[in-house]
Design a protein around this nucleic acid. Sequence first.
DNA 1: AAGCGCGATGTCACTCGCTGACATCACAGT
DNA 2: ACTGTGATGTCAGCGAGTGACATCGCGCTT
Lengths: 198, 198
Amino acid sequence: MSVAAIKYDSGVSRWEPNARGRLERAAMDLYVERGFEQTTVAEIASRAGLTERTFFRYFSDKREVLFYGAASLQELLVTTVTDAPAGTSPISAVAGAIEIAGALFQERRDGSRTRQAVIEANAELKERELIKLAALAAAMAEALRGRGVKDPIASLAAEAGIAVLKISFEEWVSLSGDDDLPLRMRAAFADLRAVTAG
Amino acid sequence: MSVAAIKYDSGVSRWEPNARGRLERAAMDLYVERGFEQTTVAEIASRAGLTERTFFRYFSDKREVLFYGAASLQELLVTTVTDAPAGTSPISAVAGAIEIAGALFQERRDGSRTRQAVIEANAELKERELIKLAALAAAMAEALRGRGVKDPIASLAAEAGIAVLKISFEEWVSLSGDDDLPLRMRAAFADLRAVTAG
DNA sequence: AAGCGCGATGTCACTCGCTGACATCACAGT
DNA sequence: ACTGTGATGTCAGCGAGTGACATCGCGCTT
């Protein structure tokens, strides 16, 4: 039971609130402090005042805790693509979505960077990140199809967008200054056009 | 000890030869028969006449057995990019490499398809595949840099190539006929040019 | 106000992937 | 014959992840 169940004389409810948030935070802290592999789920749970079993009720596995935000990002991308003005070309719709995502990352600059450092340091986490990116691409492709774009155009546009996101984000993360990510993405789309024209 | 150590009166050596190959085959068979998750490493090893411990001496994990060929594929792509005639554009060098890879898959059409069916059926395997593809992209980008191509051009060209590979391969696999994969890839590169121009 | 169902959490036992340490033993070279 | 080596086996153990069942405040019903 322990910390999470501390009861005050006043009418505090049975459990300390925000179990998921506590787990997320404990995990991030430990992953940063000692690395992903060197952290056990039991340690995370204990730091959050919960048990291992409860951790797995909130997160399907030890990696997922770092990717909890991916769902809302995907939703954002899909909505942006879907809501692009009629007549917008597939690549422009995708580019718009990707640049908005870029702005989001930029708002949480420090968070994005430490998070990325944790991921880069571990192969399992890189795998998980790649499948999340692939899911984003698939979702955007689906959104394009919803706009009447045929395959393979839809898939290609979506994958191109994700490639730009990946590459721009990597560069941006490695920079120490406060480089503008959406701008960098816009430039990358232009570069991509030039590259494919080669 | 068991099957692997059968000794014939003639001077056969201590161990049945080709342990790695036997493990690979046993694993593939079981993954196809019963699925990846439903197969334990102990079963694979036992079918190959070896022990679990030995499996892990040949393959770093249960998934890797399906991706053993990735190293030589990567080598092929890198060599092809590197050896492209001077003056070849980055995207053309990449396209050449990707189409050669496509020809390779086509040679082993049935094998490619059953293998892909196994991978598609399991999320962990998809993750592993994605990281292998990312490694291919990184290697091609590096090869381009070796030709004097600067980033982000090199990375973008490489990622574009992998996107084409992924999408074309997916379509090709889903087709029942004997569609020409390299040709489909060439078309996808053309589509990509049109898409990015949008 | 007593009773009751529910939901969040805990406890326990278990499987399986994976690893380190050490043993075995045919074969090759001396 | 002697010995070193490489491929394999044996064993013990950790940690991720899961299923089944127990606990117990809270809030609704009556």
